[in-house]
């Protein structure tokens, strides 16, 4: 209804927005690069009972500003409430709830796997399929670097785990919005 029209709003037509979206959300925060900012954000999450799935912190092109990328499950947490609480932190400058189809997100992971002579060729073959890099090698192990979406990294983990996964380190996702074609 247009503003200023004399019709009234029927109460039965009013709907409240749904709290849970049911999907994974990637939040990209620009924050002031000051001591204690991460503690404020982490403290907010623990106090309000929000569970962070991944968290990545790093510098931006502006030395006074850092970027925090975090992922959350929108089936469990009301993302709207999370972002509104984050906005109340004075050191948080900007929050973007990244739209999945307009976002490029990547995660990097390092895997150290058992790679005795007889299994080694197969692991190297997986690495090739996943466009992963072998970054360290010893007599019985390979260390492999994989970059991609977090689904891809999950998939790689499933492939190498049966060979004996010794250790794994993941960075958590970082994300950036896609450019529009005319940009």
């Amino acid at each position: 209804m247009e503003a200023g029209t004399p019709e009234l709003v029927k109460l039965e037509d009013l709907e409240a927005s749904r709290a849970l979206t049911g999907r994974k959300h990637v939040l990209s925060l620009l924050v002031e690069n000051k001591p204690g900012v991460l503690a404020r954000i982490a403290g907010l999450f623990s106090r309000r009972g929000f569970n962070i799935d991944t968290l990545a912190v790093g510098p931006t092109d502006d030395p006074d500003v850092s970027r925090i990328t975090l992922t959350l499950d929108g089936a469990v947490h009301p993302i709207d409430q999370v972002t509104k609480q984050l906005h109340k932190l004075v050191n948080v400058l900007k929050i973007r709830d990244m739209e999945p189809d307009q976002t490029i997100s990547r995660e990097m992971a390092l895997f150290r796997v058992q790679a005795a002579v007889d299994g080694r060729a197969e692991i190297m073959h997986f690495a090739e399929i996943f466009r992963a890099k072998i970054v360290d090698v010893s007599r019985r192990t390979l260390t492999i670097e994989v970059t991609g979406s977090n689904d891809k990294i999950d998939a790689f983990e499933r492939m190498v785990r049966p060979h004996g996964l010794i250790e794994m380190a993941r960075t958590g996702e970082v994300a950036i919005a896609r450019s529009r074609p005319d940009q």
């Binding site: 009013l14 409240a16 409430q81 609480q85 906005h87 109340k88």
Partner: peptide, 14 residues
């Protein structure tokens, strides 16, 4: 005045 209070406990229609 605090957006985070809105729909925190009870979903708001307006």
């Amino acid at each position: 005045i605090d957006p985070a209070e809105i729909s925190k406990n009870v979903p708001a229609h307006i």
